[in-house]
Design a protein around this nucleic acid. Structure first.
Lengths: 178, 178
DNA sequence: CGTGTCATGTAAGGAGTTACATGATTTG
DNA sequence: CAAATCATGTAACTCCTTACATGACACG
């Protein structure tokens, strides 16, 4: 799975601009993929050159011009090949979890601070996903439902453990004061 | 968080070889970090040059020689600076979830195949984590306990949703046949 | 009147992976 | 006897991020 595969998949059911693709990455895809404009725009150019996509420039007044990309037959074929290739291992880099792992080197109050910040952030992410879930509810394929449910359940699992952990750490702090 | 930070943290409580560090990445750290020998060995060299680590070569018979690395005061200071820097956003690339998201383009039986494979794999990962949890149980810092609990709960959440999803998809397949 | 949104793009650099090379010993 | 384990290392390459540049309109 690389940016090309994700872009191909994204354009399978409708044509989009680079900007709109990035928005999808930040919302609907946020729990399983991310990449920056510095990846997306050059990749779209390359994919057009490789005839996986076609570009249509749309002049707008009041707003900057758009480049709307549409997947070609060749692009669809390529995406299909990807879907039939072996699944790659998940790749996670979680600074938050790593800090928790090394929490013994910073003291309880700092760990509590980290947990509280994470709690707020994850709540926001979960809310965003829930909203999207309501929005797309009836248009979603069963497979997509499973995907988004895993995403939500993951956030919920994290929140649960953070809440439990906070209780334990706050008790420890209290005991120290006594 | 980059490979240097993770290596520094790993060497905080004991000296290790590159090979042993990699083993930790693959087991204890597997749910929040990974990297290859191609990252680890050159990074260890660089960190020794930068005086963050010292190297001790140990000659073994029957086995290849070892380079055991120990963190220096400078290294500890650097790790402390990292711990006091702002936490970076989590970065996930999950090929599995992305395929589920685009599952409508492959048909139910393929999605079921993906889910079944993932189920087995995640069960193994969860078992591994559980074993480690038992092994380190009494030596773990409260913060580390939270970390590993999040890891386990995450796997459990995924398994739960996969099981539910499989039931739904198998019913759909059955209905189609009728 | 500043901040956010819409919209695209590039250049330089960083961080990492893959594939290869070596080689003895242990395990099934 | 093959495969896995122990153990280190490099070179080529890929992919991606960061930081910058541009510019108009809308909102409060």
């Amino acid at each position: 799975m690389n940016s090309q595969d994700v872009i191909l998949g994204t354009l399978m059911d409708r044509s989009l601009t680079g900007y709109e693709i990035k928005q999808l990455f930040e919302t609907l895809y946020s729990y399983f993929y991310s990449s920056s404009y510095g990846t997306i725009y050059p990749m779209l150019h390359r994919m057009e050159k490789d005839e996986l996509l076609t570009k249509e420039s749309i002049l707008q007044d009041g707003k900057p011009n758009k480049n709307v990309y549409t997947i070609t037959e060749k692009g669809k074929k390529q995406f299909n090949e990807y879907l039939n290739s072996p699944i790659e291992a998940e790749n996670v880099k979680s600074d938050f979890l790593m800090r928790l792992f090394f929490g013994e080197y910073v003291g309880n109050s700092k760990v509590i601070e980290w947990l509280e910040k994470a709690q707020i952030q994850i709540m926001e992410q979960l809310d965003q996903l829930k909203d999207l879930c309501v929005l797309y509810k009836d248009k979603m394929h069963p497979s997509q439902v499973i995907c988004i449910q895993i995403g939500m359940k993951n956030y919920e699992a994290k929140l649960e453990m953070i809440t439990e952990g906070l209780i334990r750490l706050r008790n420890l702090e209290q005991e120290e004061r006594d």
